[in-house]
Design a protein around this nucleic acid. Sequence first.
DNA 1: ACCGTAACCCTAACGGTTAGGATTTCACAA
DNA 2: TTGTGAAATCCTAACCGTTAGGGTTACGGT
Lengths: 207, 207
Amino acid sequence: MIESEQGREQEGREGEAGWQPGRRERKKAATRQKIADTALRLFLEHGYDAVGIRDVAAEADVAVTTVFSHFAGKEALVFERDQDFEQRLTRAVTDRAPHEPLVPALRREVEALVRHCTAEGTAPVRRMIEGSAALREYEESMGLRHAEALAAAMTADPRLPATATACRATARFVIDAYALACGAADPQAAVDEVFRMIEAAWEAAAR
Amino acid sequence: MIESEQGREQEGREGEAGWQPGRRERKKAATRQKIADTALRLFLEHGYDAVGIRDVAAEADVAVTTVFSHFAGKEALVFERDQDFEQRLTRAVTDRAPHEPLVPALRREVEALVRHCTAEGTAPVRRMIEGSAALREYEESMGLRHAEALAAAMTADPRLPATATACRATARFVIDAYALACGAADPQAAVDEVFRMIEAAWEAAAR
DNA sequence: ACCGTAACCCTAACGGTTAGGATTTCACAA
DNA sequence: TTGTGAAATCCTAACCGTTAGGGTTACGGT
């Protein structure tokens, strides 16, 4: 019997230092990763629309229902890092230096996100996204959710002298800047240009 | 035999004055209208998600395929006036008075659109839209298309001293203003506030 | 050693959407 | 008037993403 690690799990709790995920969670994470990797590979090989969920499930050797227990839908297989994106934006607001103004902080973060999104090696993925209407629309609707989260973070910040409407508008403008930059010939220049506009809009609102 | 109008069609051509649509086109328009009316009625009666395309088709007494030959999808049954919206926006740019500045012209149009969208009697429709995730997302993706059309109209206007990026950004800001106002407690005030920001952004870009 | 349950599986369906191909109805002109 | 091509419509049968229902396995905590 090969059971060298039986019964020694759970030496702590989630969030504490020294916490080791148990076998169950490791397997779950592995399954999730295998599905995501398989899906991306198939999508890049044959095109997003030409690959069905059933194909992904079969190639990853899992049941179709398992795919949907890890991902909310087919498009979510492509945008795996969705939550990171949202957190980075909201933290750019909440975790900025005590007296740092809002817009430059957001601008730095968007610049970083755009760099990450137009980096070497991600070209095939971007081409795939731009090549599928479903993926393009999903990306934009993701942006909407992020804009709402960002607006909530801004509205909750007592340092900001703006109305809820101004916060919501600015949040959407920021997402617009990201979306435009990702599709622009010169992404960094686009971020620069649009954020000059956002800066002016924000100042006009802060009265 | 009751055939009082046989054989006297086609006295002109499309676009000319005095053009009468033939029986074929009248029937087609009637079918389309019947489908749209039936769909909206059923959606309001039983809820958008509770009514299937097959239900709509049966109640309108047409085949399912006929529904899809008139409308691109289920959501399009609700947003029947889609094209009007886009035309009104682009014409606010192209048909404005020779020396009228851009932003006020857009603002007037958005104000009118928001009024139309929050008018008496449209409350049930808006509640239906807000109540369905599918309809909310579709409306936003419509907005995206409108923003692109608007950006194209702006870029093509030689009077405007702005880069393509500034035009695209402004177009998206305008759509943001509309979307925010439609969901705001005081729509007109929201338009006012956001357009002050857009005005500032546009001026910052025009350099 | 035992039990509750999380993760997974299978099957069958539902609802939006489309393809294929037949049928009717109209517009136009020979 | 009548013939002809095309447009509008129809029917059937699927495809695909997604979910419900209900069962099996294997892990985690006691």
